[in-house]
Design a protein around this nucleic acid. Structure first.
Lengths: 237, 237
DNA sequence: CGTGTAATTGACTCAACTCAATCCCCGTGG
DNA sequence: CCACGGGGATTGAGTTGAGTCAATTACACG
């Protein structure tokens, strides 16, 4: 018996930052809004760069944000695609380190920006907020383990399937919702840790299977269940 | 110009949990000790198992602890080797999740165990402790990124070199200090994400280079600098 | 001093990479 | 509205690092 849906397939790879604002007393919610400001970004805008010290934390309100890290040798690794409800750039605020990652807007993006001093103040004075943040961070542990295991043990085919399902999920939160996703082959490749060519070839094979169509950067997932069961089939003993 | 020492090579892969107890006011330190109890484990003892709910948090006082995760398909991934000063099992305490990992003693191990209710109480009442924990968790982010990039972009040879240098570091904290490290090929392989055979072959090649000697599980690193520069040489443009 | 588990070696295979060429989308300017 | 140019996407051919399967050897422990 094989249980695998697109939702179950991607769940192990997603942070759960939405919980940071859950069960927040009204006073803390107000404090948060009081200290914050709205910031918008056009497509491809850079929210923050690798190596910078963070100026504040971002709460993503709408749109998608890509996070990547580039090694000294110029190797790029796409780390994550953030969706509305996710917090960004706050970790290094907590420990005064330069950002190890860059954040780039995919399409139009709206955020709530909390400047560093305000964030510190919230953390000091707002008990539930601090606690929720601690929980959110501790939950990430499992996500990283899953990500590691995926890279180590799954072949490119499965990794790409997961990647596509994740992107499909992220794009589903857009308003208005879109039926396709937009992503360069290079971004796909750097997320799954494969070369451009291998990624293209694997994508072609998915297309041949009738699981998706593509036109340039625009990819339409036709059969998410097929992708999920491709990954799920790894689970069958 | 190439800078690469064993220490610099492994730093990107190590948590910095020692900071959790730094700058703690005397009252908080006392509270911590009051609530905690000493627990010891013999070689190969299991501190906690995957799937269990955590009964408390462990602070490692002496010895080495191996952390691994096993996928539903039986694939094992070694996640980390903890050294004295590191905290274990506290993340799932914070979010009431079952442990995604198992912890096993490597050699004789001493820990300070803080039962769950006491840990919660400390967190609630001890402001600096909570804040330090938040910092420690946020610092892990960078470590995971580095781990990901390593797995994705570096060949087995480099991954094994890093693994050996990490183990060398962990074993250096033993009392009395030892000149060698003890680790099965399977553990090495599951840490670097390679097969047993590939790991053995790569190890043999290191031996042929005169960088180490081995006898069973006992591996003596003769030339850590050579291993470091092997990894470092990736950095040269 | 056997005996089972772990380590090692060999032969073969294959997934994924590299290098190189060609094609196609898409924005620009005439 | 269409030709043009450039970067991204695609395809092809050849190579190789790492995996699989199978056998042999070396420890470690009762």
């Amino acid at each position: 018996m094989q249980i695998s849906s697109p939702e179950l397939t991607i769940a192990p790879f997603l942070f759960n930052h939405q919980s940071v604002l859950e069960n927040l007393p009204p006073t803390e919610n107000e404090a948060l809004l009081e200290f914050s400001e709205r910031k918008e970004f056009p497509n491809s805008a850079v929210l923050f760069k690798e190596g910078q010290f963070p100026k504040g934390a971002y709460l993503l309100l709408s749109g998608i944000v890509r996070i990547d890290a580039t090694s000294p040798q110029g190797q790029r690794q796409v780390i994550y695609f953030y969706a509305p409800g996710d917090w960004m750039g706050y970790r290094q605020l907590l420990n005064n380190q330069p950002l190890p990652i860059a954040a780039t807007a995919i399409g139009q993006v709206e955020t709530l920006f909390i400047p560093a001093p305000a964030f510190e103040e919230l953390l000091r004075s707002q008990r539930y907020f601090a606690r929720n943040l601690l929980e959110a961070l501790s939950l990430e542990f499992t996500v990283w383990i899953n990500r590691l295991t995926t890279f180590t043990k799954l072949p490119v085919r499965e990794r790409l399937a997961i990647c596509l399902l994740i992107l499909r999920d992220r794009f589903s939160y857009l308003n208005p919702p879109v039926k396709y996703l937009i992503c360069s082959r290079a971004d796909l490749a750097d997320f799954i840790g494969a070369t451009n060519e291998t990624t293209v070839r694997t994508l072609s094979s998915f297309r041949d299977n009738g699981w998706l169509t593509s036109r340039g950067k625009k990819i339409t997932i036709l059969d998410p269940d097929a992708l999920a069961s491709l990954v799920g089939s790894v689970s069958k003993d």
